[in-house]
Every structure is written in C-alpha cells, then in structure tokens.
Amino acid sequence: MAQTEQFAADFAARTGPGSPSVGSVVNRMRALRSDLPPQDGVAVFNRVYLAVTEELGLRIERGEFPDRRAAVTLHVLFAERYLSAVGTTTAGGRPPDCWRPLFQYRRHPRVRPLQFALAGINAHIGHDLALAVVDTCRRLGCEPPQLEGEFDRVGDILTMLEEHIREDLMPGPDLLEVADPLTHLLGAWSLERARDGAWSAARLLWGIREHPELVREFTDRLDAGVGLVGRCLLTPWP
C-alpha cells in the first residue's frame, strides 16, 4: 500500500466513517488520470494537482500541520469543488463559470499545456478556495481567523502546484523571449495575489453569511470574474 493510501486508512480509522479523506480525493484524481488522454486540458491540470495532493497527504502524516483535522477538512473540501466541476461536466451539466473555459478549450490544438494548467489553478484558487474556507468553517464550527494558520500552510503547498507547473510545462528557454506572448501571460497572473484575494473573499462571505441574497450575488460575480480571467489565459495561439 502506498504511503498516501496508508495515511487515508489511518485517518479514517481515527476519525470514523464519513470524515473527509485525502486518500479518497487522491483516488478520484488517479481515476481521472487513467480515464483522460494526456493531452486533454483537464488531464494536464489534474496531473499536477494530483502530485501536490499526494505530497500534502504525506506532509499531514508527518505532523507538519498542527491542526490536522482543520488541514484535512480544508484541503478535501477544496479539492471536492474541482472534482464536482469535473463530475458535473461529465454528466452533461454546466460547471461553475470559473471552470467553463477550461472545459470548453480542453481539446483546442492551439492552446499550450501551460495555459491549461494556469487556467485550472486560476479557477481553483480564485473561486474555489474562498468557498472552501467557508465550507470548512461551517463543518468545524469555527470562524475564518481560526483557520488562518492552516490556510497559510495549505497555501504554501499550493505554491508547489505553481512550481510543478513551471517545471513540467514550461517550454524551452529559446521560446521564452521577452516579446513572446507566453512570457507576458506568465507575468500577468500571480498565485500570491490570487491567494490573498481568496482569503479576503472568504472573510467577506463569512461576514455576510446571514444575508443569502448578498452571498449569492457576490459568489456569482466572483465566479464570473474568475471565469473571464480563465478565458484570457486560454487565448489560442495563432
């Protein structure tokens, strides 16, 4: 049994059935990896996200997260939003607007793998992360400030996602000239700014949680705005 799978079994034994499991998320991402052709845009994002999720499970098992339950809950509820978008699309439904560009362009021959990966991380952090923080607060009966430490630690792991993307998908240095549009694309989007925006959005959503109409309006606009950025990231090459 792999270390991540062993971690999932141990965690479930300690917390009981129905508790969120990093292992279950990993297994679903592995199934996607098997089902999708490697050049599919969703498969590109899934591959790097799977590697980071496996690493996160190992770090939690090593005790690198002081509040283990909060870290697991936050990460699993976060990943569930991506997996839900995939499931909705596979079933013929409409995913959140933030994910639609990736699903629409996933087989476009003039979109580079790096663009697919950036569009996925933009949707996941720009939209899903804020909602996952609120989901976690509701699940654990806490407030965002109590999760800030785990948010930062999970955020540090997400930085690995960007590193994986750059290491695995960056074209050769001969292609990255100053005038190359891809160079401009890489400089126009920032994971750090997206993380900061997600934390601010989570705090705002928590503050207005007793006003469903405001929550719905804000989340709809957040979804649409992140989707617009994703569409720009997936601009086909001539």
Rank of each mutant, 00 (worst) to 15 (best):
R100A: 11
L204G: 07
S200N: 13
E143A: 14
R209H: 11
L176K: 12
P17N: 09
A91T: 06
L175M: 07
V154Q: 13
A123Y: 02
E210L: 06
H124W: 06
H211V: 02
L233A: 14
D174F: 02
V215T: 13
A130Y: 11
A188F: 09
A123D: 01
T136K: 10
T53P: 06
W206L: 03
I165W: 02
P109M: 08
E148F: 15
W189A: 04
A70R: 13
L233P: 08
H127G: 00
E54V: 12
L140C: 14
E150D: 15
T73W: 05
I60H: 14
G18Q: 04
D40H: 12
R47E: 05
L114R: 01
I165V: 11
G126V: 05
E143F: 00
S19Y: 02
A51Q: 15
E55T: 14
T159C: 09
L186S: 01
R138G: 05
E80R: 15
E150P: 05
A117S: 10
L56E: 03
C142I: 15
E80F: 06
D223R: 04
A70V: 04
G141Y: 11
D128Y: 11
W189N: 13
R195A: 07
V25I: 07
G225M: 03
L102I: 10
L118S: 04
V215I: 12
L83N: 10
W237Y: 15
R221T: 03
G207F: 05
S19P: 00
G197E: 12
F116T: 00
D223C: 06
N27I: 00
L74T: 11
G187K: 08
R62D: 02
P38E: 02
V86Q: 07
P113A: 09
G87E: 14
D220S: 13
D168T: 04
P145Q: 10
I121K: 04
E54L: 09
S200K: 11
T235A: 02
R138N: 11
G126C: 08
P17H: 08
H211T: 03
D196Q: 09
R62E: 14
G16N: 07
S21H: 05
W99G: 12
L56C: 05
P238C: 09
P181Y: 15
E61I: 07
A202K: 01
L58M: 10
R62V: 08
L175I: 00
L185Y: 00
A70G: 03
D196E: 12
H75I: 01
C232L: 11
E167D: 15
P20R: 03
R231M: 05
L129T: 01
E143V: 14
D156K: 09
P181V: 08
H124E: 05
P101S: 08
R28T: 03
C98A: 15
P38S: 03
A8C: 10
P66Q: 10
L77F: 15
D67W: 11
V25H: 07
D67N: 14
Q3D: 08
R203Y: 04
S190N: 05
L77N: 08
